[in-house]
């Protein structure tokens, strides 16, 4: 502690690394928890339809459903025209 920790404090402490990792993870797991069970499969099927016409990959699609299932938000990142 003391003077030594004064120099050390410029680096991130392991506890703050732990907190950041947890915040990201817990936020992600909570969002997974609240979504309905059919969402992953629906995502796959929508993607399959889009893939018939445009060249997209799984990572290019994002589906969000708000909690009371009233708004379905669908984001598809289309490839840039080459």
């Amino acid at each position: 502690m003391g003077i030594l920790s004064y120099f050390r404090s410029k680096k991130q402490t392991s506890a703050s690394v732990a907190k950041e990792r947890l915040q990201v993870l817990v936020a992600y797991e909570r969002s997974q928890r609240t979504q309905p069970d059919y969402l992953p499969q629906m995502q796959q099927e929508i993607l399959a339809v889009i893939a018939k016409y445009v060249d997209v990959s799984t990572n290019d699609i994002q589906i969000n459903l708000d909690e009371d299932c009233s708004i379905l938000e669908l984001n598809v990142t289309l490839p840039e025209k080459s």
Binding site: M1, S5, T13, S14, S16, A18, K19, V26
Partner: peptide, 16 residues
């Protein structure tokens, strides 16, 4: 916790 080696009570409260 003071040495930055352990999550503090406020950190855990904030996350959970």
């Amino acid at each position: 916790v003071e040495a930055g080696e352990m999550l503090g009570v406020e950190d855990v409260k904030e996350i959970l």
